[in-house]
Design a protein around this nucleic acid. Structure first.
Lengths: 346, 346
DNA sequence: CTGTTAGCGCTTTCAC
DNA sequence: GTGAAAGCGCTAACAG
């Protein structure tokens, strides 16, 4: 193993000079010294020791990525989480940072990660406010909160405009002629993202004089054991004709279950998803969904974080990303054509 | 920020003693000193500095997870990779290690990670032999190779028995009455996993007197632009009646494309997948596939690696995991019942 | 442009 | 049982 000291000795210069070359402070070193040192570095295959660097500089090149999940849960089974973290990883690598991934809902683990590794920054995804409250390092570590609703002055935030997105969902289903609709979320109880999508959905429906009935709100994905609850609702004369799912994954599972119960999508019931993950193309029928741009989000988040780390002028504290509709085949238009007449905006 | 030194001063003991308590060397410290120090530690919220620890001990608690991918490619879009890495992450956390995830096909980056972070160990997934050859740290860093075919004495290896699995696929399709079959892989050119599945497939078919025609081997997934190549083959009188895909993802995409072209699965053509990912349940029709146990694999891999790190008696150098058939609805039985007669083993 | 010096926070001999 | 001291590999003032 080669060290900086050895390079310095071989080059007949001090460690400082070598350090300057390594860290690109080339204005402090003469051109031929730079060249000589770089030659030695690549010959010897020298790699700087990150631990020593972190220790001396009191900051590592590590960025913590904290994903809301119960410890021991493989959250990458959720394709949205996996794709998002993967995109963040690519962006961080590109900038010379190393992601430290933690699945957690225990603030002590998170604190230990942030402090123990002297992280340069942290990115949170989907963390509930009640957990974020306890993480005091938010005040000292450059942080970008994503898909969360916890606010703290000076802490940047990036997320989908969930209210607007929910509204778009409600508006779309209403325009497609649906008057009785339902909603299915991942975790309405805890997830503020889900709560805002619901609120927006209500607003969007209200604009068309539609009220979301309480028994049509499913706060968790339905499973094979509990599908009966939904099917009997669907079969009742005043049951919903469309279901908005706040994640493609829920929608895909739901369609599968529905099809096993003999319901046809979209003939018997329409299904609208959220995210536009690759899976939306392989469901049957292909899923109509509200799309978000995960790569764009990851790029923006890392960019914001690096700005923050470099103490540059901060970007706006809060950035809301839009979603757009991708129509495939899981939502159909219902009702007599006359019902559409009042809509003059089409 | 609290340091070990401060704890020592507050407790009126030396740093050595505190260090011993932190590292569980309790036989060297009296019971009440232990207690006093532990109280101080939890009161102050002290968290050891990982960089300092790594530096002093010349080894970090970092385990590199290297996933074969082109740099800048978000490989977590591949649900198998995501689920596997997620499972490894959970296992490593459970044992107090930190995963360092790297998507790469450049051995220099990998070397830099391994050396720069003084990693305790490394796990490779799917790395091609031609890349692994260049990674000299394999000889010095405790390593488990997974889903690879590169052999090096002293380096552990865990993988699916791809030959046996391919054979199982061939045997199954033959038993279901298919005499003309096709194969579609992810990257036959580079992936030794795919190559072994193909070899096994040929063996399995040969046992039933079936030869896999060259034009029925698709070395890469087919896209919308190239589907014509397959459909014309399918329509020809001696075209294949079943397609074995070496990943569920390929199978799901294929079924989607096929359905858009007016082919029905399994009536017109059967499709067999590989992995049994959650997505296999949401395709239409639900996918018949060869299942592997990802959690088991991850558990085994981490267990092996930790053994290696702790210099315990090594597990066998090579462990092959089996797969099993999960029958859903994408493969149908064809041909006259008589065709089944020669099979006496059923 | 270059070098000297003093740590960063922890572990680890080796004495006591 | 406990402590003193050296050092892991690097960076960062500060001098020259």
């Amino acid at each position: 193993m080669t060290t900086l000291k050895e390079i310095a000795q071989a080059a007949g210069v001090s460690m400082t000079t070598v350090s300057n070359v390594i860290n690109g402070k080339l204005n402090r070193v003469s051109a031929d010294t730079v060249e000589r040192i770089q030659a030695l570095i690549s010959q010897s295959g020298y790699v700087p020791n990150q631990a020593a660097r972190s220790l001396a500089q009191r900051e590592s090149r590590v960025v913590a990525i904290i994903v809301q999940a119960s410890e021991n849960e493989n959250i990458f089974r959720n394709p949205y989480a996996a794709e998002y973290v993967g995109a963040l990883t690519v962006e961080l690598h590109r900038s010379g940072y190393y992601p430290l991934i933690r699945f957690s809902d225990d603030y002590r683990d998170v604190e230990a990660d942030l402090r123990g590794w002297n992280v340069a920054g942290a990115i949170f995804s989907g963390t509930f406010s009640r957990h974020l409250q306890n993480i005091h390092s938010l005040k000292t570590v450059p942080t970008v909160l994503t898909d969360c609703y916890f606010r703290l002055p000076g802490v940047n935030h990036v997320g989908v405009d969930d209210d607007a997105a929910g509204q778009m969902a409600g508006d779309y289903l209403a325009r497609m002629g649906h008057r009785r609709v339902a909603l299915m979320t991942n975790n309405l109880q805890d997830s503020e993202v889900d709560q805002h999508r619901l609120a927006g959905f209500r607003t969007g429906l209200a604009a068309h004089g539609i009220t979301l009935s309480e028994r049509c709100v499913f706060p968790q994905p339905i499973a094979a054991e509990t599908i009966g609850q939904l099917t009997s609702l669907l079969r009742s004369p005043d049951g919903p004709t469309a279901i908005f799912c706040t994640a493609d994954r829920i929608a895909a599972q739901l369609m599968q279950l529905l099809s096993a119960e003999g319901f046809r999508v979209p003939e018997d019931v329409s299904v609208l998803g959220f995210d536009n993950l690759p899976m939306a193309e392989i469901t049957h029928p292909p899923l109509t969904t509200l799309a978000q741009d995960i790569d764009q989000k990851a790029h923006l988040v890392v960019d914001m974080l690096l700005r923050h780390i470099r103490q540059e002028t901060l970007a706006p504290e809060r950035t809301l990303l839009g979603v757009w509709l991708v129509e495939r085949q899981s939502v159909r238009r219902v009702g007599p054509p006359a019902a559409l007449a009042p809509d003059t905006s089409a």
